[in-house]
Amino acid sequence: MKIQEFIEILKSKSKFPFEVQQHSEKRVYIRIARENLKDIAIVIFKEMNAKFSIASGVHIREGFEVLYHFTFDKDKFICTVRTLAPHDDPKLDSLVSIIPGATWIEREIYDILGVQFLGHPNLKRLVKAEFLGEKEFPFRKDFNIKKFKEDHGLAPKISFIQPVEQTVKKSK
């Protein structure tokens, strides 16, 4: 199955619009609206037997972009589905009910970017459990590491080595 064939099959099976951007022979990116996320996951994961690899969340100007990477091992290409959650309403449908392996990564994205996943069975904070505030998300662009480190007492105080007073006896 080449990427063109894959796109054709996808077009015939899905009833919603999507935008295709072919990067190279092995990589293809598909942009969809966030309402259709679950439908496309069902088509790709359940019907076309792709392997779910990982999702990445990026903070861009328009909002939070989440990319789901699906690998087709036999056909030697990766299909990446990208979708956008806007700033004022950072919410996406959770894929856990379709792909059990997405549990950890959705929690991670929730944790670092603050994107809510609707329908996730156990959406809790992960990495910043104890020391980051509820509204502090390290991967957002407005996160200031320097200020954060100073607030939490993590900043290493730069101290130059004090010159040792040398008591050299001058010979008279």
Partner: peptide, 9 residues
């Protein structure tokens, strides 16, 4: 990047 807790939920 990750910390996982309480796998069984």
């Amino acid at each position: 990047m990750i910390s996982a807790r309480d796998l069984s939920g």
